[in-house]
Every structure is written in structure tokens, then in C-alpha cells.
């Protein structure tokens, strides 16, 4: 109990005192996960919108596959990217394995299906409402997709936040492709896992508290967005 109390006190000290190693880890975590969300959004949001708007052969199969991929275990995603990026793999010549770029790729692969599936869900209600009116205006799918993405922007921002939350909280993928190299590829989750196993509870706790703070802030932001959207009748 006393140890725990001490650990908490030290953890607060690290956070408040602006410990350089701690903030480096936090900074890298945010950079990696935000980049991963940005990359995944470029693919996931349009894909979700296309699935909401267009009816084509194989559409159902894509939706089923996306829903299955939503539950993809992060270590498996990490393993696949590892195999692709490893020196003997097809993308090995880029030398990306055990770099932050590899971590961005792994997280992006992990959350792109989540963004696509959530975006499809968020936009199909909107499409239901808009379909006849947009057809009446003479807007084909190529116009309908950007229209839906823009008009569904509040809902889609919540989708992005969900993706960010998932990326920032996962351990397995970044551990496998990043290697948890101190000062280079060590992020919050991998540091927590390592420090806990080493018995260095204060650093693990400090990171855990920051991570929880980030997750709480993301949820508060999502809630605030929903309220703004509701006020605008969106």
C-alpha cells in the first residue's frame, strides 16, 4: 500500500516536473497515433462513404470483411506488417522496420477498417435521407460521396476520435513492428508494458495516468461535438 502511494507520488512528480523521457514518449505516442489516424482516414472515410452510397456486386462481402477486420487483434496486424517490412519481406528494401513509420503503418492498417465500418454506419442514415434529393439534383455517386463526408462531418469526427482512441491504446502492433526502442520507438503503451514487467511502477503509472487523461479528453471532445451537432440540428 505504502509502495503504491509512493509510486503515485513519484508518478505525479514526473508528470508535473516535465520529465524529459516521459514527455518524449508521450510526444511520440501522439505523433504516431495521430499520423496513423490521418493515413487511415484517407482510405477509411471515402471507403465508408462509398459503401453507404453505392450498390455494387460484392458490396456485402466488403462490409462483412470490414466488420471482421474491426476485431483484428493488434498483434496480428503487427505481425502482418512485420512480415511485409522485414528485410526479406516484399517492402523490406525501404528499411522501415523498427522505425516510427512502421508503427504508423501498423496502426493505420489496424484502424482503417474500423474507420470505414463506423463511417459507413454513420453515413448510411444520412444517405437514406439525402438519396432522393441528391438524385433529383442530378448528383451522381462521385458528387454524393464528398457531399456525405462533408455533411456528416460531426459524426465522422467522432469516428476519427474513436479510431485515435483505439490506436493510442493498443500495444501489440507497435510492439511488434516498433521494437520498443528507448528514445526512438518507445510509446506509452509499450513503455507501460516494459516498465511494469521491470517493476518500475512510477514511470508506468505516470504514463498510465497520462494515457487515461488522453482517452478521457478524447471522449469529452466527442461528447462536446455531439452536443454542438445537436444544437445545429445536424
Amino acid at each position: 500500500m505504502n509502495d503504491l502511494g509512493m509510486a503515485f507520488a513519484t508518478a505525479f512528480g514526473l508528470i508535473v516536473g516535465g520529465d524529459a523521457a516521459l514527455w518524449h514518449i508521450i510526444g511520440l505516442s501522439l505523433r504516431v497515433s495521430l499520423s496513423a489516424v490521418a493515413v487511415a482516414a484517407l482510405v477509411g472515410l471515402p471507403l465508408g462513404a462509398v459503401l453507404a452510397v453505392m450498390r455494387f456486386p460484392g458490396r456485402r462481402a466488403v462490409v462483412v470483411a470490414l466488420n471482421a477486420l474491426m476485431g483484428l487483434p493488434p498483434v496480428v496486424a503487427g505481425l502482418v506488417i512485420y512480415l511485409l517490412l522485414s528485410r526479406s519481406g516484399p517492402l523490406g528494401s525501404f528499411g522501415l522496420l523498427f522505425t516510427p513509420a512502421a508503427m504508423v503503418i501498423a496502426q493505420a492498417v489496424l484502424i482503417a477498417p474500423i474507420l470505414a465500418a463506423l463511417a459507413r454506419e454513420a453515413l448510411s442514415g444520412l444517405w437514406e435521407e439525402y438519396r432522393d434529393q441528391l438524385r433529383s439534383f442530378g448528383a451522381g455517386p462521385a458528387r454524393a460521396v464528398p457531399t456525405l463526408i462533408w455533411d456528416g462531418r460531426f459524426a465522422l469526427f467522432t469516428v476519427l476520435l474513436a479510431g485515435f482512441g483505439r490506436a493510442a491504446a493498443e500495444v501489440g502492433a507497435v510492439m511488434v513492428v516498433g521494437g520498443n526502442i528507448e528514445g526512438f520507438t518507445r510509446v506509452m503503451t509499450t513503455a507501460i508494458a516494459l516498465e511494469t514487467s521491470k517493476g518500475d511502477l512510477p514511470l508506468a503509472l505516470a504514463l498510465g495516468l497520462v494515457l487515461m487523461g488522453i482517452v478521457l479528453a478524447v471522449n469529452a471532445l466527442a461528447q462536446a461535438l455531439r452536443e454542438i451537432a445537436a444544437r445545429q440540428g445536424a
Binding site: L126, Y130, D132, Q133, T147, D151, G152, A234
Partner: peptide
């Protein structure tokens, strides 16, 4: 339409 469709 009967229920006007308002873009957001």
C-alpha cells in the same frame, strides 16, 4: 419532397 430535405 413532402418532408423537405435540408442539407446540414
Amino acid at each position: 419532397f413532402q418532408r423537405p430535405v435540408m442539407l446540414r
